[in-house]
């Protein structure tokens, strides 16, 4: 910060900001207790945990806990998969959710707008366990809906569950489908926060609706878009275990295209439940996420300081 005036300057500032600081106090105290205090548990990544020693008393074991992940021979593959899936999710979800939000606001039939918006929220409530069963009902080669359709149209059956190339599309689709309603609400709220007088001004200037969308709406929701983008970048090395596990299961045939860090860790540790090793993988993911976010945040800062996360 501004260190020119030293400690005295700091207290002067603090006094000047006393109202702000007071308003921040509850959140800061909460965060210290519920986030920073348990965060000290990351030391587990460097410990051989036992119950009697607990988090602090257990013996250190250096980087031992990290080894299994890299030694599995699949660390590169799963890290790549995790990132690629997240990149695809971020881009496709963002574009679709914005499109849905904008188009919803353009619909004049009030009931149609309300009803379709409500319906889009429904998938959010369907758990991944059920989605997994549903997907099996669609893609199964024996009695799957899609294969019945293909054969009815005179085509050859497709064994989706032995065809890894198909799965990036399937996973992206289900991820999009499940989040479209929930995600577009955020953009809807941003659009609703735009001052209507700006639209009126645009209309007077003779802009057509498409120009209005691209020249007014999209720039106006940019701050929200970028914040949400940065927030998802913060999880770019973390895979959605529930989704991958319930849709793919333990089908090794698909792993080349579907195995992510979290599913690999689950497989490796399911029998021995090693806290140190799972903390190590978590730390590995966190550090990579942290680096990525700092870089991307810097880039965004070059574009506009107000859009950055911190």
């Amino acid at each position: 910060m501004n260190n020119k005036k030293g400690v005295k300057g700091f207290f002067k500032k603090a006094y000047k900001y006393r109202a702000f600081l007071l308003m921040l106090l509850p959140a800061v105290v909460y965060t210290l207790i519920f986030a920073y205090y348990p965060m000290t548990g990351v030391v587990l990544a460097f410990k051989k945990y036992n119950f009697s020693g607990g988090i602090w008393g257990s013996p250190w074991n250096g980087f031992e806990n990290f080894k299994f992940f890299f030694q599995s021979g699949q660390a590169g593959l799963v890290t790549r998969n995790t990132v690629l899936y997240n990149v695809a999710f971020i881009i496709i979800n963002t574009v679709t959710q914005i499109a849905v939000a904008i188009l919803l606001t353009e619909i004049h039939g009030k009931h149609f707008r309300k009803v379709s918006q409500s319906l889009m929220f429904l998938p959010y409530f369907i758990s991944w366990v059920i989605v997994g069963v549903m997907a099996f009902n669609i893609f199964s080669s024996d009695y799957g809906f899609l294969n019945r359709l293909i054969t009815a149209l005179g085509g050859e059956k497709v064994a989706f569950y032995t065809k890894p190339e198909a799965w990036p599309f399937i996973l992206v689709f289900f991820n999009l489908w499940k989040g479209v309603g929930y995600g577009s609400v955020m953009y809807l709220a941003a659009i609703m926060g735009i001052d209507t007088s700006i639209y009126e001004a645009a209309a007077i200037d003779g802009a057509n609706v498409f120009q209005r969308i691209f020249k007014v709406t999209i720039p106006m929701i940019m701050p929200t878009t970028i914040i949400l983008f940065l927030l998802s970048i913060g999880g770019i090395f973390k895979g959605n275990f529930d989704m991958f596990y319930n849709l793919v299961g333990t089908n090794g045939l698909l792993y080349n295209y579907t195995d992510v860090i979290d599913t690999l860790t689950f497989r490796a540790l399911v029998t021995n439940n090693n806290y140190g090793m799972s903390a190590a993988v978590g730390l590995f993911q966190s550090v990579l996420c942290f680096i990525t976010v700092v870089l991307v945040n810097k880039l965004v800062g070059h574009y506009d300081k107000d859009y950055t996360l911190f």
């Binding site: 299994f68 030694q71 599995s72 089908n251 497989r267």
Partner: peptide
């Protein structure tokens, strides 16, 4: 008792996933 070789044992469990069940079920 796998504790002395826990790293290797965990890595082996992870590495098995991709080929083992497909082989056992003749799907490769």
């Amino acid at each position: 008792d796998r504790t002395p070789v826990e790293t290797q044992a965990s890595a082996v469990e992870a590495a098995l996933g991709m080929y083992y069940s497909p082989l056992v079920n003749g799907l490769v």
